Every structure is written in C-alpha cells, then in structure tokens.
Amino acid sequence: METYLNLMLIRFGLIVGGLVVLALLVFAIALTLKRRGRLDEVRRYADPVVRAGLRAAARRFEGGKTGTPWPRRQDGRR
C-alpha cells in the first residue's frame, strides 16, 4: 500500500510540475509577444478559435443534461 501511495504522489508531482512548466512557457511567450508589439495581432487571430472552442464545449455539455455527454444519432445510437 505504501508503494502505491508513493507512486500516486510521484504522479501528482509530475502532473503539477508539468502544469507549472506549461504556465511559465505561456507567460514567457505572451511577454515576448507583448515586448515585440504583436500581442494584439495574436489576440485578434486567437479570438475566433477560442470562441469556437467554447461553443463546442457548451454544445457538448448541453447534451450531458440527460446523462449522455454525446448527442445521440438519429438511429438512437451514440
């Protein structure tokens, strides 16, 4: 049991460490773009992509009200 808990702790640490590295990478990219004056341009291109992703996520979660995360096809199958 102790070995299992150690493995879970290591796994948690790796996941958190990866998220921290990813956040630092995104911050460094945003800072570089801001210093070069291109952050507004990137924001203009990324805005439609983010909106489309949010709409797709909303559609997917709306189907989850009945307990199914994916809408059923016309023949009744998932």
Rank of each mutant, 00 (worst) to 15 (best):
M1D: 14
E2M: 11
E2K: 15
T3W: 07
T3A: 14
T3N: 13
Y4E: 13
L5N: 13
M8I: 13
L9Y: 08
R11H: 08
R11T: 12
G13I: 07
L14R: 13
L14I: 11
V16I: 15
V16W: 08
G17A: 02
G17F: 02
L19P: 03
L19G: 08
V20M: 12
L22W: 11
A23P: 00
L24V: 05
L25W: 15
L25D: 12
L25N: 07
V26G: 00
V26N: 03
V26Y: 03
F27P: 00
F27I: 04
A28Y: 07
I29H: 03
A30V: 10
A30I: 06
A30R: 04
L31W: 09
L31T: 11
L33H: 03
K34V: 00
G37W: 01
R38C: 00
R38K: 13
L39C: 00
L39V: 01
E41N: 02
V42W: 09
R43I: 02
R43M: 06
Y45H: 10
A46H: 06
D47W: 06
D47L: 07
P48R: 02
V50E: 05
V50F: 09
G53S: 05
G53F: 03
L54Q: 04
R55H: 01
A56W: 01
R59K: 09
E62W: 11
E62C: 04
G63R: 11
G64N: 08
G64I: 00
K65F: 12
T68K: 13
P69V: 15
W70R: 13
P71D: 12
P71C: 05
Q74R: 15
D75T: 08
D75W: 08
D75E: 12
D75A: 11
G76C: 08
R77T: 15
R77E: 14
R77L: 13
R77C: 05
